[in-house]
Each structure stands twice: as structure tokens, then as C-alpha cells.
Computed example of a mutant assay.
Amino acid sequence: MLIAGRYRLRDAIGRGEMGEVWRAYDETLGRPVAVKLLLPHDSDPTAPSRFRLEAQTAGRLSHRHVVGVLDFGEHGDRLFLVMELVDGDSLARALAVSGPLPAERVARIAAQAAAGLAAAPPAGHRAPRH
């Protein structure tokens, strides 16, 4: 499937409550990307506005431990968010395969996550650029 005339969806790589994430290819710029599509939410009329807020909030962040937002739009009746594609396994998969991680690795992951979260502004403020 081609989204917005340029993002070719390849493989589904994740699914959550609000959306599904696809490994995709940006045919205009010739690079791999991740595309998150809002799932149909007939029973939740607030889903599109929450998804739009997620895109706007994430789009203002710039930090090496935060996935960058590249584009946002609507394709047909579904909103989409285009992000940098980060290769590798999820933390859930790493835990399922190898069990508990060494304390040093847990500390490194936690520090990186905390640094990324610290880049997010308080509600109603603009994010600093790093």
C-alpha cells in the first residue's frame, strides 16, 4: 500500500491501542521509515485528536534518544505519522529471548529513556532543540 503517494508500507512491526506501525520506504527520498497508522476507532471519537496531539508533541522534540517525526497527514480516512525507522529488537523481545538483562544494561537503557523523557517540555511549553 502506498500512503500519501510516497510511503510504501512493507511489514507490520507493531500494534498498540491507537495504531499500527509499519516498516515502510519513502520513495521520494529513497530511505526506510516507520509509518504509524491510526486504527479505526468508531467507539472513541477522541482518538483522532489524541493521535494528532501525539504527532504535534513528538514533532517538536529533537533528541538523540527520541525517535524523530518526519511527516504527518491523512490518507483516505486514516491519520498517519512518519518517523525515523529504528532497527533492532524491542525490549519485550530481548527479554523474551534472553531473560533478565544484566544490571549494567538495564541502567544504560533507563538512563537513555530518562534523557529522552527529559527532552519533553512540560504541558503547554515548547520543546528545546538539542
Rank of each mutant, 00 (worst) to 15 (best):
S98D: 14
Y7H: 06
V106Y: 05
F72M: 03
F80H: 06
G76S: 02
E27F: 11
F72H: 11
A114C: 10
A118S: 12
M83I: 02
A4R: 07
D71A: 08
V67E: 00
M1Y: 13
A107Q: 07
T57G: 01
R105N: 04
A24V: 02
P122W: 07
G68R: 15
G19P: 10
L101S: 03
P45Q: 09
P122F: 04
M83A: 06
P45F: 15
A34F: 08
G124F: 08
L39V: 07
P40N: 06
T46V: 11
F80Y: 14
A12T: 10
P45N: 03
V66K: 00
R126T: 15
A110I: 09
A12C: 12
A127P: 09
D87I: 00
M1S: 15
P32L: 04
V97R: 09
V66G: 03
P100F: 05
L91N: 12
F51R: 03
M1A: 13
A94G: 02
A111L: 14
V97K: 03
M1V: 15
D71G: 07
A4I: 12
F80E: 05
L9Q: 09
D42R: 07
E84Y: 10
E104I: 06
G19Y: 01
I109R: 04
V33A: 05
G14P: 12
A118N: 06
R129S: 14
H41C: 03
A123N: 04
E54N: 02
T57W: 09
G73T: 06
L81N: 01
W22C: 02
R52L: 14
G14R: 13
R105C: 02
D77M: 06
D87K: 11
D11F: 09
D89R: 10
L85H: 13
L37N: 00
M1T: 15
D26K: 04
R129P: 03
L39A: 09
E84S: 05
A12F: 04
A118L: 12
R8P: 02
G116T: 09
E27D: 12
A103D: 08
A123W: 10
L101I: 03
L61G: 07
E104P: 08
V66A: 11
A118T: 02
E17V: 09
G5S: 13
S90R: 11
G124N: 08
L37G: 01
G73S: 14
L2H: 02
A111N: 06
H65K: 04
G76N: 05
E104F: 10
T46L: 12
P128D: 07
L39R: 14
R15F: 05
A114K: 04
P128W: 13
R78I: 01
R8N: 09
T57S: 09
L81P: 00
R6A: 15
R10I: 06
A123Y: 11
A115C: 05
S43P: 00
A123C: 01
L70H: 15
R10A: 14
L70Y: 15
E54A: 01
L117G: 00
G124H: 05
T46N: 07
L91F: 12
A114W: 02
A111S: 10
P121M: 10
E74M: 12
R31Q: 12
R129D: 11
G76W: 10
I13E: 00
F80S: 09
S49H: 10
V97W: 00
R105F: 00
L95H: 05
A58W: 00
